[in-house]
């Protein structure tokens, strides 16, 4: 079993349509399929195709998943300028918040949660495509929790993008995952 694997992980990824919040949530769920008996991926988004709020909940578990969404998640990834105040308040004590402080209007006040503040958009832009910021966040989450091995995510990603026109995109996404893991400052 992977390091740090506890048999139950829950994560909310929140952002706006187009930022890829649902993409990394689904990727995590897909990658979780090989190691966990139970997986739920619940995307929740508005009627608009682009630009509306979007949020997804992912649960990976060895036991039956009775719920499918939660008020108080163990971990939250906030994309861009998603409502920090709302989610900071809701995270379980001892939980994890991953966000981009450079884009947030406020500071995080809670001291009973672990906070990973990383400039994902800037890092992704430096790698060649700012749209890969979501993978920087996911990389950080995987490194911090050990929910699934990053290699598994890369495998799923390769399968999904196979035959796609943009080979550079895949390579940037993978680099973003690794970069995120590096910057998570685990340990």
């Amino acid at each position: 079993m992977e390091k740090g694997r506890t048999g139950y992980f829950e994560l909310i990824v929140a952002g706006r349509g187009g930022q890829g919040a649902l993409t990394i949530g689904r990727l995590l769920a897909d990658a979780g399929m090989s190691g966990y008996r139970h997986v739920t991926y619940f995307p929740n988004y508005g009627a608009a195709m682009r630009g509306g709020e979007s949020e997804c909940t992912v649960i990976l578990s060895d036991q039956e998943i009775t719920g499918l969404a939660m008020l108080e998640p163990a971990a939250v990834i906030l994309m861009g300028a998603a409502p920090l105040e709302e989610f900071e308040r809701r995270i379980k004590p001892g939980g994890l918040l991953i966000f981009d402080g450079s884009l947030a209007a406020q500071k995080v006040n809670r001291e009973d949660i672990k906070v990973i503040d990383l400039p994902a958009t800037r890092i992704a832009a430096e790698l060649g495509d700012s749209r890969a910021a979501n993978f920087v966040f996911l990389g950080a989450y995987l490194a911090a929790t050990g929910a699934v091995l990053p290699e598994l995510c890369e495998e799923v990603l390769e399968k999904k993008l196979r035959g796609g026109k943009n080979k550079t995109l895949l390579s940037i996404d993978k680099q973003a995952l690794r970069e995120g893991a590096k910057l998570a400052g685990v340990g």
Binding site: A47, E53, E55, G67, A69, P83
Partner: peptide, 20 residues
């Protein structure tokens, strides 16, 4: 339903969470 502050569409419409 728990209705978060902020958004009017997804978040704003709220959900009956297990905690509720």
């Amino acid at each position: 339903r728990y209705t978060p502050k902020g958004g009017i569409m997804t978040g704003g419409s709220g959900i009956i969470y297990p905690e509720n």
